[in-house]
Design a protein around this nucleic acid. Structure first.
Lengths: 222, 222
DNA sequence: CGATGCTTGCTGGACAGCAAGCAAGCGACG
DNA sequence: CGTCGCTTGCTTGCTGTCCAGCAAGCATCG
């Protein structure tokens, strides 16, 4: 790697370039199929720079995961605050949350792939996922507020959140495999929008039906 | 690999042993992180046998995927036939289909992981997935019958099936990651059962609500 | 029935290519 | 000049592929 003359020394910039490159490559190809040389090339640094900056490949992977999870945690928090500030009816807030989450995942497919691969495991140690738990708990609290449910672990709010996450997550991963095989188009903006609407309508309908049937503390609008 | 004296020559048995071993290893560790020597060891054959029987690693992977998809296609077909023969009300059939699919995936986590990795792609060519399309179309037809909907591509039946698949699929993959972070227990039989019930109730509620709101041709019971 | 010659299933050594990690080197900055 | 950030040459271990060889079966012949 010939150092271009205009490039100043900038450790932080290098570090972030390597993190970006590694994140995209790990997401695309997986941990085992990505070499440190590939990462260096995409980051515009030398073959050895990733190893130098992060000590080892495993450590680089950990750092990538940590940053990704911290990012999504920040997104959850900001979304929650916006929802709280809006003062809208709970059904609207719930619908808004679903739509926002759906859009967030579809504009960060790299994040989804990364986490998906980590969850499949085996390729490398998925430690350093501690912050993920906090992100999850914050999300449960947010959704419980929105739907007017109890936020305890194992509660209906948890189940509801898992349902929302499942529905928003799947189309990102299986956009080009299961979805077209089933006959759902997710390649066009229109198709994606239809899926989005379906999920929102479906979840709201399901919540309403659960509330009626199970006598939940769902407060409807308020 | 010392050939055990009792082991007779048996090409089919060897081939299947290699396919089994490769399927479990690819599912556990991914394509790139699995060596042909590992496959041979787990299959109880020599290091060179996988390469000899399948020509190349990529070809072995293709064969593994093909068999897995063929298996699930058979399962879909048999489930559909059983549902048709039962003559039960459509809501019951729908609920039964969801429950069966949920159980099928949870008793074949290896299949889920395999397909998930293939969908994430990049690791290897996900060709030979043509049979998957047929399986998908058969499943749409089945679900359309069950819910009394139109089975055309892009129809509500497709959307509904994708919803069912998403909900049943996700807990298998994220059983030890997202689910516990959110506070949903999927490790005990009781927790898994709760999730199962939640999904079934939720989908039925959603379908009913869609039918009421959108004026769908959902025929309720019949 | 036994011997013979060929096919086929499978083994394990050889080899080339690649990737991670190490360390010496080198230019820039303080 | 010393330190820091990074590069580059090299080592070492692993992996896919090729291939020569061996042994089990099978058919044909004596």
């Amino acid at each position: 790697m010939v150092p271009s003359p205009d490039r100043q020394r900038n450790p932080l910039r290098t570090r972030n370039a390597i993190l970006d490159a590694a994140a995209s490559l790990f997401a695309e190809r997986g941990y085992a199929a990505t070499s440190l040389a590939d990462v260096g090339a995409r980051a515009g640094v030398s073959r050895g720079a990733p190893g130098y900056c992060f000590g080892s490949k495993a450590e680089l992977y950990r750092a990538v995961l940590e940053r990704a999870i911290e990012d999504v945690r920040a997104a959850v928090r900001s979304g929650r605050e916006r929802a709280l500030a809006s003062g809208r009816p709970s059904d609207d807030v719930l619908a808004g949350a679903i739509g926002e989450y759906f859009d967030y995942l579809h504009s960060h497919p790299e994040f989804v792939r990364l986490i998906e691969r980590a969850a499949l495991g085996g390729e490398a140690l998925p430690d350093g996922l501690r912050p993920a738990v906090y992100a999850g708990q914050e999300a449960v609290a947010a959704i419980a507020e929105a739907a007017g449910l109890d936020a305890a672990p194992g509660s209906e709010a948890s189940q509801l959140l898992l349902t929302m996450v499942s529905l928003c997550w799947f189309p990102v991963v299986h956009r080009h495999t299961v979805a077209p095989a089933i006959g759902v188009d997710l390649d066009t903006a229109a198709g994606l929008g239809r899926r989005r609407e379906h999920i929102m309508a479906f979840v709201l309908g399901g919540v309403r039906s659960l509330a009626e049937a199970g006598g939940l503390s769902h407060t409807g609008r308020g």
